[in-house]
Amino acid sequence: MKNKQKLFEDIVYGIFLILGLISVASVLLITIYLLISGIPAIKEIGLIKFMFGSTWKPTAASPEYGILPFILTSIYGTAGAIIIGVPIGFLTAVYVAKIAPPKVKRVIGNAVGLLAGIPSVVYGLVGMMVLVPGIKKIFNIADGASLLAAIIVLAVMILPSIIKVSVTALEAVPQEYEDASLSLGATPIETYFRVTVPAAKSGIAAAVVLGVGRAIGEAMAVMMVSGNVANMPSLFQSVRFLTTAVASEMSYAAGLQREALFSIALVLFLFIMLINATLNFFLKRSKED
């Protein structure tokens, strides 16, 4: 009877252990699959030629597989989204965390939650119908589907993450810091920007890095507004990102072209892992602060 009970408990333990390990197994599965399917094409094309080649012509008579345009577009696009999105998100976060009365705070909090929940294709659709024609008209160019349109859409899409994480970081700053600053004669606004914000800098850095991760990984919305031609990045030209390079050719590619798409995914994955490591570094530091 005792033994039977113990055996039963051991089985239950085993089941829970397996369930616990599924997430680890999934990460391993994704990593291994990307490595196995991504490396052959890189080997065949040559790492330098693949990473730093500036022409992507997989279907030409003498095909070329250079993904530098995609890498640079992803970097420029993300940088642009950060330059526009971070100041807006950061300032909104300071207002929400420190100044807004509780009711306003709740309303803005819900608004940010809603912005975060809107599917990316809806952003893409609105970008396609409003931004793209708008850019075409304002800057008088042939086609508004461009890097600029993608940057604006991405900036909007990373806003919610930046606001949420920054608000959490700002609210975690001890009240005493602010009290000390106020009693020394600083006004509330001066206190928030010169005492609270510096004290929460690791958390705010984490918010920015999270935004970088979101922006570099976004595919659908960008695909709908960026025009999708494999040009070197330029603000008013049609461009292709790492994500959209994979998405746009996957459905019909075959042979080396298909394998090269997996290699692009591998490069994207390495970028994301790097960003995740940075994010963890800042999150850890903000916990220690």
Binding site: G20, L21, S23, S26, I30, A219, T243, F269, M273, N276
Partner: peptide
């Protein structure tokens, strides 16, 4: 395990698709 699930939540959906 916690690191693994954090990593999972940061992976872009296009990679999940592939």
């Amino acid at each position: 395990i916690e690191y693994a699930s954090e990593t999972l939540s940061g992976i872009p959906s296009i990679i999940y698709g592939l």
